[in-house]
């Protein structure tokens, strides 16, 4: 089937099988391998992308469902001005270890902060409940999102040195 999908601002017209999952379309057809696959039941969230402004799991969506949609992936998070504050937060606060869940975690965090730029710790944890991380215990992910939140609100963000045991 012919689909036309905007990904990170670029329009792509492609012929896909109806059964092709959006994540495979992004990874195999467009070569955007930043979006990962971690499970097939929609639990892990490694495949999270933003479709028409909403964080969704691209492994639980057919590419044909995204026909006409605007998709944002981790590859589009940074812009000419540099890293997105969420990416910067993950870097500054050691919010990633193996990095496999990270693209999905970052996209969920971006979507969260677009709705609420000053979330509480509970709201952050609730906002990323659909993204599983096996490495960090979420501690530094929460701090990374807090960093980004502060930065987005024009406050002084707190990096790793604010907390780490030395």
């Amino acid at each position: 089937m012919e689909v036309s999908i905007s990904v990170n601002g670029t329009n792509h017209s492609s012929d896909v099988e109806p059964r092709t999952l959006l994540v495979h379309y992004l990874r195999e057809d467009l070569g955007l391998t930043g979006t990962h696959v971690g499970c097939e039941t929609g639990y892990c969230g490694a495949c999270t992308v933003i479709v028409d402004g909403r964080a969704v799991k691209s492994c639980t969506m057919f590419a044909v469902q995204a026909d006409g949609a605007e998709v944002r992936t981790v590859e589009g998070a940074a812009n000419d001005a540099g890293l997105h504050p969420v990416q910067e937060g993950f870097w500054e606060c050691h919010g990633l270890q193996c990095g496999y869940c990270t693209p999905g975690m970052i996209m969920s965090s971006i979507a969260l902060l677009e709705e609420n730029d000053n979330p509480s710790e509970d709201e952050i944890r609730h906002g990323i409940e659909g993204n599983l991380c096996r490495c960090t215990g979420y501690h530094n992910i929460v701090r990374s999102v807090q960093y980004a939140s502060a930065k987005l609100r024009g406050e002084e963000p707190q990096g790793a040195s604010a907390e780490v045991t030395t």
Partner: peptide, 22 residues
């Protein structure tokens, strides 16, 4: 598709036609 697609991925459901009402 939050219930249907996982079931299809596990091949527990095999519809011949999928009607997308979105």
């Amino acid at each position: 598709g939050m219930s249907l697609i996982p079931l299809m991925k596990m091949r527990l459901v095999r519809p011949t036609t999928v009607i997308d009402i979105s």
